[in-house]
Design a protein around this nucleic acid. Structure first.
Length: 155
DNA sequence: GCCAACGTTGGC
DNA sequence: GCCAACGTTGGC
């Protein structure tokens, strides 16, 4: 069992959107970074915990909890010429990019980035490192527990 | 809109 | 394989 933080722009897919989806589950599409892709392909397993993070928005921060469901499969948007995620070098025979399904388990209060930065136990979080901008980053069990405990306390 | 930081591309 | 130029991310 591992833990992850996954960034989504709420204008595109928010925690509310995922909770409104059938089975509270959506395909995580649009990852176009090899390191993040490799996490999905090689490391993520069903049941892994996910911190659902809202990025590129007025209030960036953790907005909910989720879990990985199922196994990776080709990201359909890479083949769609009308999608902004279209990749002309990808073919169904040789896909480059993958999706994995993510199920939202709960919406939490918005835990802002600035608040995360102020918590000493989280100073090593990949998200918080200088220059870090990966859309999928690993989270340690300790970091996960710290955050979940904090959010439970406020619930 | 700015800009720091990182990733990708492509000529050589 | 190097590296300059360009593109993207994402907070502020």
């Amino acid at each position: 069992m591992q833990y992850w933080l996954m960034k989504s722009e709420p204008d595109e897919v928010s925690i509310d959107d995922v909770l409104a989806a059938p089975a509270h589950t959506v395909a995580w599409f649009g990852v176009r970074n090899y390191q993040a892709r490799n996490f999905m392909r090689d490391a993520m397993r069903p049941g892994d915990g996910v911190l659902f993070y809202h990025s590129s928005c007025p209030q960036p921060g953790i907005a909910g909890l989720a879990e990985v469901v199922g196994t990776p499969y080709p990201d359909a948007t890479q083949f769609d010429p009308h999608s902004k995620y279209h990749d002309p070098k990808a073919t169904p025979e040789q896909p480059r990019w993958i999706s994995i399904d993510v199920r939202a388990t709960k919406k939490t209060r918005l835990l802002p980035l600035a608040e995360l930065r102020a918590i000493p136990a989280l100073e090593d979080m990949v998200l918080l490192q200088k220059g870090s901008r990966l859309s999928i980053t690993p989270v340690t069990k300790g970091q996960w527990n710290t955050i979940v405990k904090l959010l439970d306390k406020d619930a």
